[in-house]
Design a protein around this nucleic acid. Structure first.
Lengths: 164, 164
DNA sequence: GTTTACGTTCAATATGTACTAAACAAACAT
DNA sequence: ATGTTTGTTTAGTACATATTGAACGTAAAC
């Protein structure tokens, strides 16, 4: 099935366009299309890349919050899978980056108190607009999460997830 | 004033973390702190980089919609300045990227109709959550823009902007 | 027509970093 | 203890791309 590989490559390229390593994107795509948790070796072979890269990139995505690491009784291997609500993690990450930019600007405003009104106005605009979008997006995130919790709870009532 | 250079460098690094050239970020920072429109030569000298880089990166940011190019009567030079509501452009860009990912996934769902329920469910989850956030963020953008139009209109009533 | 003042493009280079393969560490099994 | 099986780290390489400087094109000025 070539569709699978094409999909994985496209996710890889999309990830790269956002500043992530290409392999991280492919890993993401692979896990998206994997019914169950995967081991490092499994992924490395499927993607035809070194295990070291998979290890590094898996932990990268783990830090970003889109992956989950699980384990199995009587098994030493690590298992990676998509986090239950991984897109919320993506949004949270973006929120974090906008927040960082906001902090940078807010912290700098006093330094430029002597600058012309145009500049001060622009920094204040940035302060305002970021506050607006950060608050709005954070609100969306809350809404989604509570909505997801309900749906997720229903699923778990029917199919309890083992191994986590 | 070292604060200015520090600010510009920090914006440069922040931009780089998001996959843009460092000079593009510095250009962004420079324009943020410039009271008026700047020429390519001006910027190149201030940032101590080649004019070619400034030309390329300025047009990059122009395409992304955070910059504006203006001209002056009796002057051959191009002038660059921050777009009036540039952060809306940043949000719109992010919206575009999420939209692209959404399209990728939505278009691929039929290809994986034969896959296990776990995979199909995950793709449908992605479809849903992206629709939610894309719609929500787009709505925020609309709200902000109408709010900004009003404020901007007021400003322009008091201080008409020449040269555009 | 020539020169000057601009913006763009391009070949060459520098620089960073993704990636690999191998060494390493840790935990387990025997 | 010794040998496996795992994940991590690291030195080295390959690769991509940011950046430069110069060549180029164009339009105005003289």
């Amino acid at each position: 099935m070539a569709a699978r590989e094409r999909f994985i490559e496209e996710v890889g390229m999309a990830a790269e366009a956002d500043g992530l390593p290409r392999i991280a994107g492919r890993l993401f795509g692979h896990l998206l299309l994997s019914p169950g948790p995967c081991t490092l070796d499994e992924i490395a072979e499927a993607l035809d890349v070194s295990k070291g890269s998979v290890s590094t990139d898996a932990r990268l995505l783990l830090r970003h919050g889109w992956l989950r690491r699980t384990s199995r009784a009587g098994d030493r291997k690590d298992y990676y899978e998509m986090a239950p609500d991984f897109f919320a993690g993506i949004v949270a990450y973006r929120l974090g980056r906008w927040d960082a930019l906001h902090d940078l600007v807010a912290a700098s405003i006093p330094d430029f108190a002597e600058e012309p009104a145009t500049v001060r106005g622009r920094l204040e605009y940035l302060d305002e607009v970021q506050a607006f979008f950060v608050a709005g997006l954070r609100q969306l995130l809350l809404e989604w999460r509570s909505r997801f919790e309900i749906a997720d709870g229903q699923d778990r009532a029917v199919v309890p997830t083992p191994g986590s």
